[in-house]
């Protein structure tokens, strides 16, 4: 009986006939209409998934609907620009990977820096160096040796220039001094599946994108792009890349939401409280992170800012050193890591 009532309630909410269960606590900010989170990437992608888990948590805390809008295009800069230009009332947020927000400016896409935003971080994603299970490379050592033996001959699949996977591979290549054949795909999942199909030999995308194929032994994880081992349910412990290349400094790759500076003070206070009370204790988000090989570590305010800075400068300078940047990071005040 309870199931029936619940499903009727959901359908009524869908039809706009009933308001969402309002359990809002006494936060200083009491929103009175739906809040929009702009996901500047396609529905179903890494950002979209995290935000769709996060949105119901915020809904429960704030007592209004939280609507996720997908505005993909131009590497996420269009949706982000729309959030930046929206009325500064706290009802429009942007989502994504925080290091992208900091590096749009050096790519000449959008003139914004992390100082323009109030940042709330939820989970951080780890990249994995994976190979097709039929390739002969059993360890990361063997893969490095193969790269040296055949410079530029081994194909590496990524989600395109300046994607998480590409930055990882560039980082490894610059540290060890190797050459590879970069095969860009239209997203993380296509890159992973092409490696499974044998079109490319190596893939360096996020653990969340490789998880199922690793579990099914269609891909083999050689190293995690991290400085501590990554434990992935069903796969086991993946050694950190610093075991082989200790000089690498690994920045985090945090996903979260942000609103432009200038939103009312009570919105900021409320979101700080929600992040402290609700998001940090979110079982749904914790379970999602564990399942997808991500780290659950919500942060806000100064902590989030401090966490984001190194990842932004790392990405900005890797892009600049790869001649991809239009503007030098130094010109816009991003120090070399």
């Amino acid at each position: 009986m309870r199931r029936i009532l619940k499903s009727i309630l959901i359908s009524l909410i869908v039809l706009g006939l009933a308001a969402g269960a309002s359990v809002a606590q006494d936060y200083p900010w009491q929103p009175d209409r739906p809040i929009t989170i702009i996901v500047p990437w396609a529905a179903g992608g890494s950002t979209d998934q995290v935000i769709r888990v996060l949105a119901p948590e915020l809904e429960g805390a704030l007592g209004v609907s939280v609507v996720v809008v997908n505005q993909p295009g131009a590497s996420g800069s269009i949706g982000t620009a729309n959030a930046l230009n929206a009325p500064k009332d706290g009802y429009t947020w942007a989502a994504g990977a925080i290091r992208d927000v900091g590096t749009y400016v050096v790519l000449g896409m959008l003139d914004t820096s992390i100082d323009d935003w109030h940042v709330y971080l939820a989970v951080s994603n780890v990249s994995i160096v994976g190979v097709n299970a039929n390739t002969p490379y059993q360890t990361f050592d063997e893969l490095l040796a193969a790269f040296e033996a055949d410079p530029g001959g081994i194909t590496v699949a990524t989600a395109g220039l300046s994607s998480a996977g590409h930055v990882v591979m560039e980082d490894i290549a610059q540290a060890v001094g190797l050459a590879y054949s970069h095969v860009p795909y239209d997203g993380g999942n296509p890159a992973v599946i092409a490696t499974v199909a044998g079109e490319a030999a190596v893939v360096t995308q996020l653990a969340s994108e490789q998880a199922e194929m690793l579990r099914a032994n269609r891909l083999r994880a050689l190293a995690a792009y991290a400085d501590i081992p990554l434990v992935l349910d069903g796969v086991g412990e993946i050694p950190p890349i610093t075991d082989w290349i200790p000089e690498l400094t690994i920045p985090s790759n945090f996903f979260g939401i942000w609103a432009p500076q200038g939103i009312p003070e009570e919105v900021v206070e409320t979101m700080n409280m929600v992040w402290e009370d609700v998001v940090k204790n979110s079982e749904a988000l914790r379970a999602y992170a564990a399942d997808r090989g991500a780290l659950f570590n919500p942060m806000y305010g100064d902590a989030a800012y401090e966490e984001a800075l190194p990842s932004i400068s790392h990405q900005a300078w890797t892009l600049y050193d790869g001649d991809k940047a239009v503007i030098s990071p130094a010109e816009v005040g991003i120090p070399r890591p």
Binding site: I10, A43, D48, R52, V53, P56, V67, V68, N70, A284
Partner: peptide
């Protein structure tokens, strides 16, 4: 996409 968020519970 719309119903994904709404049916989360």
């Amino acid at each position: 996409a719309l119903l994904t968020t709404l049916t989360f519970g």
